[in-house]
Design a binder for these strands. Sequence first.
RNA 1: GGCCCGUUGGUCAAGCGGUUAAGACACCGGCCUCUCACGCCGGUAACACCAGUUCGAUUCUGGUACGGGUCACCA
Length: 544
Amino acid sequence: MDYNALANYLFPNVTASPEDMEKRFPERSLPEGANVTRIGPSPTGFVHLGNLYNAIIGERIAHQSGGVFYLRIEDTDNKREVEGAVETVINAMNYFGVNFDEGAVASGDNGNYGPYRQRQREEIYHVFAKHLVEQGLAYPCFLTAEEIDEIREKQTANKENPGIYGEYAKNRDLTLEQIKENIEAGKEWVLRYRGVQTDEYICVDDAIRGKVEMPRNNMDFVLLKSDGIPTYHFAHVVDDHLMRSTHVIRGEEWLSSLPMHVELFNALGWKQPIYCHTATLMKMEGTGKRKLSKRKDPELALSYYQQEGISSDAIWEFLLTILNSNFEEWRIANPEADYRDFPYSLSKMSISGALVDLDKLRNISKDVIGRMNAEDVCREWLNWCEQYDEKFAGLIKKYPERTVAALGVGKGGNKPRKDIETWKQACSFMSFYYDETFEINDEMPAECDEETRKIFFAKYLESYDHSDDSSTWFSKVKAITEELRFAAKPKDYKKNPDQFKGSIVHITNMLRIALTGRANAPDIHEISHVLGEDIVRARLEKWM
RNA sequence: GGCCCGUUGGUCAAGCGGUUAAGACACCGGCCUCUCACGCCGGUAACACCAGUUCGAUUCUGGUACGGGUCACCA
């Protein structure tokens, strides 16, 4: 068989050589030890938590080392592609603060190693496809889906491994004439790799899992589909070589196709990147864990976290705690530091699948927002509201100063309040600061009957001086409390409940409910100053 | 079924031959306190199983069980 003739027949338009490609995409000139990483999402319209998980690893090891992190769109499956999905990916990554140095952007491409959309790289793949044919390492295969099904059935019946290999690769030794005849008859063909029947093993040093041993590939797997577009396997090898990735970070579901990739890197004479196969994100179901599923688990979609208003910092910190077990320890030691200063390490990755623990996320989120200053909280909250809650976006813009002041309540001191978990929840928490959304939700304490209320609010407003400091204010409250025959100290009331009508707890709760509509809210004195004297008086006068 | 990967409390996990087996979240007490939140103190709770190696195994080896992944012209 004249492989050159076959190659020219199959790829008559390919004139470039592999060497031309090497020149077009030269080695990157980066400092020693700089890593080049990427994420390669498929534009299915669904952005996975796992996409972010892997993105964070890639972003960290690239940027920590002074390297490059890029976005490549893996759109080789035109059946699954959804309109606008590329924008969805870019928006989601943007929302969660993942910054790319190069790759696909909304308006096209940015960088010298593109195109960054695989469908646009067809001629590049064909250069190497042709090269493999010339080497006798690839051949056209005309097997139809039905024929392949028959082969599989036979193999299953014989308890053999399914697939196209060895004697089952019926088209691997067609003559050039037969091939031409088939093609001229209009038969569709795919390009298959010529697998080797062997019992050798391969060994790959995975950066996360250590040494992984597997049987060498013996399959005649597909390189180019009948539409001329490569499969993932071929595209991965060509792209990560030409784009000069140093590390390939991907889910462990790829582990089993590793032998194909190793085979191709060797066949093309290229150096393998460092593989990093990450653990699958899991979910609790009944008594066991299971893989998160797109259909059953809303929390798998990144859009879920966007809608809930989880801040991007919170997601990062949460994922970092899953990714590197020493992150939490580091965070405790460096409470003020930017998480980007944390020395992320691949070797500290967990191998088994982590459960997505929403409780933990919420806890981290409270912490993260608690650490932020009021201006930043206000900006991010507004940012979220503009997309998801117009009413609050309007209120924040109408009362910018009051909003910042309100968000700053309890921020002073070394025990900052942690009231806000998510931007969505911030809307309900903050509602009492605006007359437009203020409403009474809780019942007045039973100890404070209508008469007590009237007397209290009258006296309170009479003695109210908006300029009082916290302790002056509170001593006035205590004085009125005692006048009303309530205990100024809760403990006194506890000891002798018969001697009082109630305690200061009831009085302040009554005040709090009148002011905020709820029994649980931050410091009354601070809130009063955020609201301003007019609103305070107006809300209290209603009870007189 | 073949091939791979994994298994420490409810969850995330530290541990790398000798430990009272860390820590975090959640949960339960208590303290602080004008409520709530925060904070502080304390508590419940774990090495899947069976062999072997060893003076000694959570840690090393083999097997069993269980869980997961993958076996496409999908990624």
